[in-house]
Amino acid sequence: MKLKYLTSAIALTSSSLSLVAHADEHTVMTDIDIAGYSVPVEAGGLYDRYRSNPPLSVIAESKPELDLSWFKTLDKTQVDIGFPSYSPNFYYKNERISVVFTADADKLAALIPDKVAAQVQPLKIWPGRGLVVLTAYAYHYCDNDQYNEIALSVVTNQPGNGNWGPLSLIGQAMSGDYWGYVLKLPVDTELARVRGVVGYNLPKWLTAIDFDSDETTVTYTVADEKTGQPDLIFSADKLTDLSTDGEIVTNSFTNLNHNDELTYGYAKSRLMSYATSTDEANVRLTLGDGYLSDFIRSLDLGAMLKYEYVADFQSALYVPQPLSVLLSEQ
């Protein structure tokens, strides 16, 4: 897949994207304290009222069209992750686009901290080439209100399992349990940033992410946090012939907590409507000259192996646990 590049002229003539969270101009905001941070949230929104633990009856009353049956099978637990919260965090109505690229395996390995690298390494699809996944999320309705997110991750083996390259990748696909190391994770609300950084030690920062959808295409435009100008444009086709079988998949990550201790976290997702493609023409990735685009260029992206269009999914994000817990169960 050929990457496109934003020219200075395009960047200068495009409307600047505000670094402030995307909110309806009529939305009233209020500040709350999370781990010592003053965080603006929607006044009277789900997070303002329930701090990640809204009753499902409230969700059903607000969005009667949603199927909440899966969430009724999941139990929330009160946790302390640097601030009081509940796990898992529920995402009721969402969509995403994901692309798997090959990338320079040595460069990917160098980005994984030594402690983490002792447990996981990039899966090599062929000699010298690892895999990265670029995913754009639109969380339309969740315990954290509404926000958009861009995730860039290295595909790795599961901790405690061998790294057998393509065989490990096939095994993860067959089990529906995918593992990675998160490299970058910009978001467009301060609530999502603070919760992610403090509670999960994830590489989040705040910038504007514009989500646009029409009959045939979905597009995410990410601003550079320093200039506010468009940096990365990730656009893809809305695939047809969608599966609606409600497949459950798990996306897990290995990480270090704030005490430099090994942890793992995961999200389980119920895919309500989705399709995949290997046609590079379905995806358009345009890089600018900001921080995120420069970082992506440094990975030496190559062929696109898979595109996944998920028109509708639900998810449950669990707080990280010590990696020793997972290893002891194997």
Rank of each mutant, 00 (worst) to 15 (best):
K2P: 09
L3N: 00
Y5D: 12
T7K: 07
S8F: 09
A9M: 14
L12S: 14
L12M: 14
S14T: 07
L17V: 12
S18M: 04
L19E: 06
A21Y: 00
H22N: 15
H22Q: 14
H26I: 04
D31P: 02
G36Y: 02
V39Q: 11
V39R: 07
V39F: 09
V41C: 10
G44T: 07
G45S: 13
D48K: 05
N53T: 00
V58C: 03
I59V: 15
S62C: 08
K63A: 15
S69W: 08
F71D: 02
F71C: 06
T73I: 03
L74Y: 12
L74W: 13
Q78A: 14
I81V: 15
G82N: 13
F83C: 11
S87K: 05
P88Y: 05
F90T: 00
Y92S: 02
K93V: 01
I97T: 10
V99Y: 00
V100H: 02
D104P: 10
D106A: 15
D106K: 15
K115Y: 05
Q119S: 02
W126T: 15
R129V: 05
V132A: 01
A136C: 15
Y139R: 06
H140Y: 12
D143F: 07
N144S: 15
I150W: 01
V155Q: 07
N157T: 07
G162V: 07
N163G: 03
I170T: 06
A173K: 07
S175D: 13
D177H: 11
Y178P: 02
W179M: 01
Y181W: 02
K184G: 04
V187F: 06
E190N: 12
V194I: 15
G196K: 01
G196P: 03
G199F: 09
Y200I: 04
L202N: 08
P203G: 14
K204A: 11
W205P: 00
T207E: 05
A208Y: 01
F211E: 05
T216G: 10
T217I: 13
T219A: 07
V222R: 00
A223D: 04
Q229L: 14
Q229V: 06
P230K: 01
L232Y: 03
I233D: 00
S235Y: 08
S235K: 14
A236R: 02
K238M: 04
L239E: 09
L239N: 08
L239A: 10
S252E: 04
T254R: 00
N255Y: 01
L256D: 10
L262K: 03
Y266Q: 09
A267H: 05
L271E: 01
M272H: 03
Y274C: 05
S277C: 08
A281R: 13
N282P: 03
G288P: 06
D289L: 03
G290K: 08
L292C: 10
I296G: 00
I296E: 00
S298W: 05
L299P: 07
L301S: 11
M304N: 00
K306N: 12
A311L: 01
D312H: 12
F313C: 00
Q314G: 01
V319D: 13
P322Q: 09
P322H: 10
L323Y: 00
L326R: 14
S328Y: 10
